[in-house]
């Protein structure tokens, strides 16, 4: 299932970061702590945590992540700080930054860091902040979009203003 520009806008809307459908998606990081490396790391996390059926991950994560932190310096700091924590862990075990890992190794690394069982907490430990700012950040973005909703079997997922008709409809034949 292909993630589109519409999904990027929907995900941004669900996080209060969209200024309407006319928003320009530059794809270029602005000033601030979330630069190319942080975006590359989020793309690498997305490749791990998004289901295999999802296509267009790189473009979606890139455009979403850049707009998401624009004008939100505190949140951007949280993302950058979580990336640094993940890199520190990855360097100590794999002698590389997370964004440089193959997806299979990246998956094992995230699990090895116990991010899968960590409670998301924006003010918590390293793994809790990685869970909050990187993993859950991207899962929230995906599952509040129409494409993410369809993956799960719901056309109007929670957080997406998808109207008041789908709840009346029966299941697809």
């Amino acid at each position: 299932m292909e993630l589109t520009r519409r999904d990027v806008l929907a995900a941004l809307a669900a996080s209060g970061a969209a200024a309407g459908a006319g928003i320009a998606l530059s794809g270029e990081p602005g000033e601030g702590p979330v630069g190319e490396h942080e975006v590359d790391t989020l793309v690498a996390v997305g490749n791990v945590v998004y289901p295999g059926e999802v296509e267009g991950i790189e473009e979606f994560v890139r455009q979403y992540s850049i707009e998401r932190v624009r004008g939100r310096p505190e949140y951007a700091e949280g993302v950058a700080d979580a990336v640094a924590a993940l890199d520190e862990y990855t360097r100590s075990w794999e002698d590389a930054e997370f964004a440089a890992l193959e997806t299979e190794l990246a998956d094992r690394t995230l699990s090895g860091f116990d991010v899968d069982v960590a409670d998301p907490d924006p003010d918590g430990s390293d793994r809790e902040r990685v869970r909050y700012y990187l993993v859950n950040e991207l899962l929230y973005a995906l599952f509040s979009t129409p494409t993410g909703g369809e993956l799960a079997g719901i056309e109007n997922p929670q957080g997406h203003p998808g109207g008041t008709t789908s709840y009346q409809r029966g299941p697809p034949e």
């Binding site: 791990v48 945590v49 998004y50 289901p51 295999g52 059926e53 998956d107 995230l110 899968d116 069982v117 998301p120 993993v135 859950n136 899962l139 929230y140 995906l142 599952f143 509040s144 993410g148 909703g149 799960a152 079997g153 719901i154 997922p157 929670q158 957080g159």
Partner: peptide
């Protein structure tokens, strides 16, 4: 639970 809540609250990811 809604799908987004299930996604955010699990101890798994991907497929």
């Amino acid at each position: 639970p809604s799908p987004v809540e299930m996604a955010l609250g699990g101890d798994d990811w991907g497929d």
